[in-house]
Amino acid sequence: MKIIVAIKQVPERDARIRIDAAGKWIDLQDIEVALNESDAYALEEALQLKEAQGGEVVAISVGPERAGQTIREALAKGADRGIHVEVSDPDALTNLDSLAIARLLASAIRDEQPDLVLTGLQSDDLGFGQTGVILAELLGIPHATLILKTEVTSTGIRVLRELEDGWFQHIDMPTPALLTIQSGTNKLRYATLMGIKRAKMKELRAVTADLASVAPVLVRDRVTLPSKQRTTEILTGTPAEAAQKLVDKLQAEARVL
C-alpha cells in the first residue's frame, strides 16, 4: 500500500505572533515552527497502516526551505521518502490559498499513483480545512473528512467519521481515496536518534513549485491579533448573597448554567 501524507509546517503553538509590516500576515522571521498537529496524526495513521499492510509512506509538503526540516522529522518517524515542493519567495508563499496549495500538491502527487492520500483535518495557522478536500477533487478520487479510524477491507477502506454531537459515521470507500485525519486519534510515536540518523540517508526530493500555474483566487485583506478583554468584578455581600449573584451572572451573562 502506497500512502502519501501531506504535511504542513506551522508556527509553534507558543510562538510570539506579530503582524508583519504589510498587515496581511504574521511576521515569520525568527518564528519557531512545528509540524501541524493533525498532520502529525495523519502521519501516525499512515505509519500504522504501513506497519500492518506493508508498503510505502511518502511525506510531502509545500513550503519554504525550512519546511525541509519538517519533512525530515516525518522521515525520522518512519516515512520512507519525502517530496518538498519548494516555494522560495516568501511573499508568493504568503499569498497562496488552499486551491493553489492543493494544485501544487496534486501535480507532485499525480504520478505517484498512491492508494491512499492522508492529510490533517486542518492547519493550525490558517485553519481553512480545505486543502485535503480540494486535493481529492483535483486527483479525481473520493474523500472523507474528520477521520478517527481506518480499517483496510477487501474492497477498499472502511473509515470512522466524527459527526456533531457525539454521532459517528462508518463509511466504506474504494481506494484510491483521500482522508483528512482528526487530531488525537492515535498515540503519537516519539522521534528517535536512530530515526534521525536513518532519515539522513532517505530520499528527500525537492521540486520547484510552478507558481505561474496556480494563481490564488482568495485574497487576504488584513489580519489582526485578537483583542484581549478582561474584566474582573468582585461580588460582595454575605457568602450566600455573593453565591446568589454568581449564579445569576453565570445564568444570565455567561449562560453556562
Partner: peptide
C-alpha cells in the same frame, strides 16, 4: 531501547513529544 524506538510506552511517548514540542 529508546534510541531505536523499541521501547513503547504511552507515557514516555507523551513525555518525549512534550519535551520536544514544549
Amino acid at each position: 531501547a529508546t534510541n531505536t524506538g523499541t521501547w513503547e510506552d504511552d507515557y514516555a511517548g507523551k513525555l518525549f513529544n512534550a519535551m520536544e514540542r514544549n
